[in-house]
Nucleic acid binder design. Structure first.
Lengths: 147, 147
DNA sequence: TTTACTGCAAAAGGTTTGCATGGGT
DNA sequence: ACCCATGCAAACCTTTTGCAGTAAA
């Protein structure tokens, strides 16, 4: 299996774009941690590492990573975008606590079949399927009862 | 079954809030069309009808409707919130064309069971479960091949 | 009479863009 | 040498908020 960097470099070459240290540093930071991230967090981690990248470049780079399928947008409905690294990972869903922000990842084995069924039934070519669940975790439920 | 207006008036009374023509006009506009909507569209339709409501009041009213369970937020990942009227309707999911914006609604009967399973398995009290699918409809797929 | 609600305009917060400079190819 | 990419700051867009006036209760 090709590495993330190889995938990206190929993509860059095919489009006649340019290979820059900024883009590759952003990409590396993303696949080093393998977690959900948002632009602010990514920017801070890069700064702490001493990398010199602007937020504008991060936004511009993310669009490329999305386009070549290395990451995807995840919607946590909290006012800004979240992303997750997906290359080489099975699709998964999120169960998120609205009170403390905890995120549980789970897999739902039936989703690929559902995706096929939808594609067939409605003639769609499906690009993304998101199952996102919001609620309150046990500790936060207990706290709420104290009020 | 109580009407939407009754539900809302009860909610208002219980909280010691005030019953205003603006709020009820917004609510009526929402359940008159029974479709997905966003703030801009709702504002335009109200204006065309001759109603005098500001966007600020719409935003403030929507929070109340969300809170009393008449509507819910739907995420189309396109930069602003969408809403849908849910009182008296079964939960449903959306299949949306990224090219022309067409929206197909479908039901996924397994979701309530999945919701129970997640609640039990992780100790969560679940507030909302969204299954959103993005892709390209047949006509738009055909168009893309022409390029 | 009290105090919640409205409209307006300003603020806020995240993302995009114009522009001059810098750096791949 | 060409022109894409970067950083900065300004612009942009949606949503929220402060405030003074208005209107439910």
């Amino acid at each position: 299996m090709k590495s993330e960097l190889e995938i990206f470099r190929e993509y860059i070459r095919q489009r006649g774009l340019r290979r820059t240290p900024e883009r590759e540093e952003i990409l590396q930071q993303i696949f080093e941690t393998h977690e959900h991230f948002d632009v602010d967090g990514l920017y801070l981690r890069l700064k702490q590492k001493g990398a010199k990248v602007s937020k504008a470049s991060i936004y511009r780079a993310l669009r490329l990573f999305l386009d070549c399928g290395l990451i995807r947008e995840v919607d946590f409905s909290d006012g800004h975008w979240h992303y997750e690294y997906i290359y080489g990972h099975g699709p998964h869903c999120h169960l998120r606590c609205l009170s403390c922000g905890q995120i549980v990842e789970f897999e739902e084995p039936g989703l690929p079949l559902l995706q096929e069924r939808l594609a067939r039934q409605y003639g769609y070519r499906i690009a993304d399927l998101q199952l996102e669940v919001k609620g309150y975790c046990s500790p936060c439920q207990a706290e709420q009862q104290d009020d």
